[in-house]
Computed example of a mutant assay.
Amino acid sequence: ATHVPAVPVDVVDSTAAGDAFTAALAVAWGEGRDLAEAVRWAAAAGAACVRKLGASVALPRRAEIDELFLGG
Results as ranks from 00 to 15, higher is better:
Val27Gln: 09
Ala63Ser: 13
Val9Met: 03
Leu35Val: 12
Pro8Asp: 09
Asp19Met: 10
Asp19Ser: 13
Val11Leu: 10
Val12Pro: 08
Ala26Trp: 13
Ala45Asp: 08
Gly30Asp: 13
Asp10Glu: 14
Leu35Pro: 03
Leu68Gly: 05
Glu67Val: 08
Trp41Leu: 15
Glu67Gly: 07
Cys49Ile: 01
Leu68Met: 08
Val9Glu: 01
Gly30Leu: 14
Phe69Glu: 08
Arg40Lys: 13
Ala63Leu: 09
Glu37Thr: 14
His3Ser: 00
Asp66Val: 12
Asp10Val: 10
Val7Asp: 02
Ala17Phe: 03
Ala38Ser: 15
Ala1Tyr: 15
Phe69Pro: 04
Ser14Pro: 05
Leu25Arg: 11
Leu35Gln: 08
Ala36Met: 00
Gly32Pro: 04
Ala63Lys: 12
Asp19Phe: 11
Val57Ala: 15
Asp13Ile: 01
Val9Ile: 06
Val4Ala: 08
Ser14His: 03
Thr22Leu: 11
Trp29Cys: 00
Leu68Val: 05
Val12Arg: 12
Val7Ser: 02
Ala38Cys: 10
Ala63Trp: 09
Gly18Asp: 09
Leu70Met: 12
Asp19Gln: 10
Leu25Ser: 13
Ala43Lys: 00
Ala55Tyr: 12
Gly18Trp: 05
Glu37His: 11
Ala47Trp: 01
Gly46Met: 08
Gly72Asp: 12
Val12Gly: 03
Ser56Tyr: 14
Arg51Val: 05
Ala48Ile: 07
Gly72Thr: 09
